[in-house]
Design a protein around this nucleic acid. Structure first.
Lengths: 396, 396
DNA sequence: CGGCCTTCCGTCGAGTGTCAACGAAAGTAG
DNA sequence: CTACTTTCGTTGACACTCGACGGAAGGCCG
């Protein structure tokens, strides 16, 4: 059966595999009950998956008076995902296992404005020593996830008219990788990637989830019904240029006035502080001041939280999320930003929508993007189609 | 094979059927190519579906030099869907065929505040003569769709704390029908239903769609990636209580101030006009005045459009829709309302998001809810699971 | 108008995948 | 150590799917 063809039984082994993707061990009887197929059939399909190397036996289950059932589970280290988080001034590269744990990661300065080839080459140059450290090679990579700081046409993996990334417009990122790694490449914008990363570390209660990145810009990623919502042009969640009430007369780099980003982003808060004679230029400076207990910085951050809360109150009415995570550099200002957000949200939004709503700072911190890039890659590679493609590749 | 069991071959006939749901005729070869299974197998499955009565032969295709291929298609009148649109003061009942055409419909005054039993009984009492008019009976009904003017827990079909519907809270609507019609019952809130109805009459370009109802209240239905987005508590799209800039000091019935609904709803515009000494009480009065060319009414409607546009500009940034339809009674004021909306939207929203965005009045008018209720019912009944359930029911 | 060609339909045997049953295996309890 | 319980791997029966084949239905041409 494995002679040049497929090892997967009825091609339904990939469906069975979906149950094991969470990494938890299961007995054959569990799987038979969950899928409705006979135990003997489950056994056959597990053999196929085992021969692919994706699953393996783990310690047997507890005996209930007879022979203890054997248990199988995903082998998390069977393959790796390569996660690449491209920022404006840095690139972060990591390797994750199949459940999304970041095994190794490394950051390096790199200007996205240098164009695709230098940045992606650097990312690969970082990845190789990481692979070596784990004793693996590029063949161990089952998929690549890439986050870029601008709008991306997800289906093709090409950036679409990114404002901050000269030379990247319509560049075929998956095509570039094709010469270097024989694995599928998924590309999405950095906020979506971070949303996926943070979402993956929350429980199932976060089925309707909003991730907000507050840094140099402000953006959001929407996960609804377990799916990332990208919108018609892939720019859903672009909340940085929604007008807020405090914004009359405040000009934004987008050419409009009163945008959220012009009031609540890191540079905007820093500019506010400079007007008070405080030396601050970036989000990082603001966070340092807040950490140091500077009252004026705290007040400014809280006001930024209120501005953000105004927009989030509207988004809560639209989307009715159950969890909102706030990440990005400014999230390091922690509770002060959130206090402002909550103040306005609980005043403005409808009680039913806020009753079970959690608003919190992102748990994943600066690893959100990397984790998300890994999750995006893994999600694709371990999908039924991905498993079948892998099967055809292995038994070619 | 049909002796007490299932007529559907490998239970995959229901998958094949999905291709035929659009009502277009297809040849066996078409279907074989589309599904990847052998022509002979397709033939067998079509036999099973034919014996269910859902599909049938239509005029053969054009010969390409040999025997012309036979073609099969959905029989749209094989079954009916019962559509019920419950409004605050009226109930509208209709019968649709399997592609969602409304065959007959009737409206009757009915106060939703009378409670579930009187309203639903009335709906059935209207439905029976309609059925008779078509020469059918209740057994012809394959599913029931119900729209209610308040939040609904979709999975269970129970209203959840509706403000305007005393006696309906947590009422088991599908359970009520169980004694009267042996068909699945789907319940959703009226705005979602209208969104489904309007969406079904737009082309595939409306994959990311926003429907806005402007009447006594203001609400929205979101369809993203082809799926209706209901949010964590099923109250997504509740945009009536988002604050707008013109709202300082304007009290809303929700207890807050500055809500969109307090400025741009039918009653709110009517109240504005009364301040100018014009006799107007409801949305209907406002629309009449606009139709009559009353300049003050036109100006008020346009201003309401601007207020709405402010909220929609934000929603465009969040969701990045490709089409926005505006329905509800106030939509009858047509271009004047839209002019205000467009004025603000094109000023505020980002160019990329508005570049390919269509903003229009709902094509389906006051039939939106009815069509949507029918589509909801049909969508469920003709899904793979629905077809299998039907099969088991017929060949029990 | 009849013969020939093209294309499609229905049937039938071969092959494959799935299932329930059965005996062997691997534990626990006394 | 024996009896009992539970699970595992195998195996033959059965159902489903596929490709092939002969017949059927229509167009084309002499």
């Amino acid at each position: 059966m494995t002679d040049g063809g497929s090892a997967l039984g009825g091609a339904d082994a990939s469906e069975l595999f979906q149950l094991l993707r969470d990494g938890l061990p299961r007995t054959v009887a569990d799987l038979a009950a969950a899928t409705g197929v006979a135990r003997s059939t489950v056994s056959l399909r597990l053999d196929a998956l085992t021969s692919l190397g994706l699953i393996g036996p783990v310690d047997p289950g507890l005996s209930t008076g007879g022979r203890p059932p054997r248990r199988v589970a995903l082998l998390p280290e069977a393959r790796l995902a390569l996660a690449i988080d491209v920022g404006a001034s840095h690139v972060q590269v990591g390797l994750t296992n199949l459940v999304g744990d970041v095994l190794l990661r490394r950051r390096a300065p790199s200007s996205v404005a240098d164009g695709p080839d230098p940045v992606l080459s650097l990312a690969l140059a970082i990845a190789d020593p990481l692979l070596e450290e784990l004793g693996r090679d590029r063949d161990a990579i089952i998929a690549v996830g890439v986050g870029l700081p601008g709008p991306v046409h997800f289906e093709t993996g090409r950036p679409s008219k990114p404002p901050l990334m000269p030379g990247w417009d319509a560049f075929d990122v998956p095509g570039w990788f094709r010469d270097h790694i024989a694995a599928p490449v998924l590309v999405d914008n950095d906020v979506n990637i971070m949303a996926l990363g943070e979402h993956s570390r929350l429980g199932a209660e976060a089925g309707h989830f909003l991730f907000v990145k507050v840094a140099t810009g402000i953006g959001a990623g929407i996960i609804s019904g377990g799916l990332l919502q990208r919108g018609a042009q892939g720019i859903a969640g672009d909340i940085g240029h929604v007008r807020v009430s405090r914004g009359a007369g405040v000009l934004c780099r987008c050419g409009n006035e009163g945008c959220l980003e012009a009031l609540a982003s890191g540079p905007a808060v820093a500019a506010d502080l400079r007007e008070d004679g405080i030396d601050a230029a970036t989000a990082r400076d603001v966070v340092s001041l807040v950490s140091a207990g500077d009252l004026r910085a705290i007040r400014a951050v809280r006001q930024a939280g209120r501005d953000l809360g105004e927009v989030l109150a509207a988004s809560i009415s639209f989307l009715n999320p159950s969890v909102i995570s706030i990440g990005g550099q400014m999230a390091a200002a922690g509770e002060h930003l959130l206090a402002g957000v909550r103040e306005v949200v609980y005043q403005r939004a409808m009680p039913l929508a806020t009753r079970n709503l959690q608003i919190m700072t992102a748990r994943t911190g600066d690893r959100a993007g990397l984790i998300g890039a890994g999750m995006l890659a893994i999600h694709h590679a371990l999908s039924p189609q991905g498993i079948q493609a892998l099967d055809e590749k292995v038994f070619s």
